[in-house]
Design a protein around this nucleic acid. Structure first.
Length: 188
DNA sequence: CGATTTTGACCCGCGC
DNA sequence: GCGCGGGTCAAAATCG
C-alpha cells in the first residue's frame, strides 16, 4: 500500500489566522509542468491556479460539539450543550493515490458518494486512543489528479510512524507547527 | 487472531 | 412531514 514512488508532500503556505483559513498543499507529482523543479516543498504560489476548480477548498471553522460521541449512526448519545468549534483544514494535493500518508494511523469508518462527484469520499479517524481526529479524503471529478484531504481536530499525541525520510520529517514539522500555533480552539 | 476495511442501515439538519 | 444530502455505526468480511 505504499505509494508508488514519488509523492511529494508539500507544506502549507497560509498564516493561521482569523476564523477561517485554508491550507493548500500542492505536490506536483508526475505532472510537474511548472517551471521550478518539482521536489522540494517549493510552496511557490500553489494557490489554486492551474487547477481552476470552481468550488475551491475554502473551509471555514465549523461548529461542532465538544464530546466525542455524538449523533450519527446507531448511537444516539447526546450531552449538555457546550458547543465549541473545531477547526478544519483543507489540504489539497495533486496525487494519484488517495491515501496520503501523513504519519498517523487512520482507520476508515465510512465512505459515501457525494453529489456532483463520481468519486466517493472516505472518512477516516485517528486510531490513537483518546484522539478523535478525523479526516476525509475526496477526489475531484474534474481533475482526477486532485485529492482534497480535510482534517478535523488536532492530534494530541506524537506521530506513530517511523520517520525515515525527509518528507515525513517535513510533514511532522508542519503538523507540529500547526498544533503549537493554534490554540485548542481559536476563540470565536 | 487481532486490527482494519467494506457496506448497508441509521441518524440528523435542512429545505420544500 | 418528507425527502435528500451528508456523516457515522456496526456487523461481516478481509487483511497481515
Amino acid at each position: 500500500m505504499l505509494f508508488p514512488s514519488t509523492i511529494t508532500i508539500s507544506s502549507y503556505n497560509d498564516p493561521i489566522m482569523g476564523s477561517s483559513y485554508h491550507i493548500y498543499g500542492n505536490n506536483l507529482e508526475g505532472q510537474s509542468s511548472n517551471g521550478g523543479r518539482d521536489g522540494i516543498i517549493g510552496m511557490n504560489n500553489g494557490i489554486n491556479d492551474d487547477n481552476n476548480n470552481n468550488n475551491s477548498v475554502s473551509l471555514d471553522v465549523i461548529k461542532d460539539d465538544d464530546d466525542d460521541e455524538k449523533r450519527g449512526g446507531g448511537s444516539r448519545k447526546k450531552k449538555g450543550g457546550l458547543k465549541v468549534r473545531k477547526p478544519r483544514y483543507a489540504f489539497q494535493t495533486r496525487s494519484q493515490v488517495d491515501i496520503l500518508d501523513d504519519g498517523y494511523r487512520w482507520r476508515k469508518y465510512g465512505q459515501k458518494a457525494v453529489k456532483n462527484n463520481k468519486f466517493p469520499r472516505s472518512y477516516y479517524r485517528c486510531t490513537h486512543q483518546g484522539c478523535n481526529v478525523k479526516k476525509q479524503v475526496q477526489r475531484l471529478t474534474k481533475d482526477e489528479g486532485v485529492v482534497v484531504t480535510t482534517y478535523e481536530g488536532i492530534h494530541t499525541h506524537p506521530i506513530d510512524k517511523t520517520t525515515d525520510n525527509f518528507e515525513n520529517i517535513l510533514t511532522q514539522m508542519h503538523i507540529y507547527s500547526n498544533t503549537i500555533t493554534t490554540p485548542p480552539y481559536p476563540f470565536h
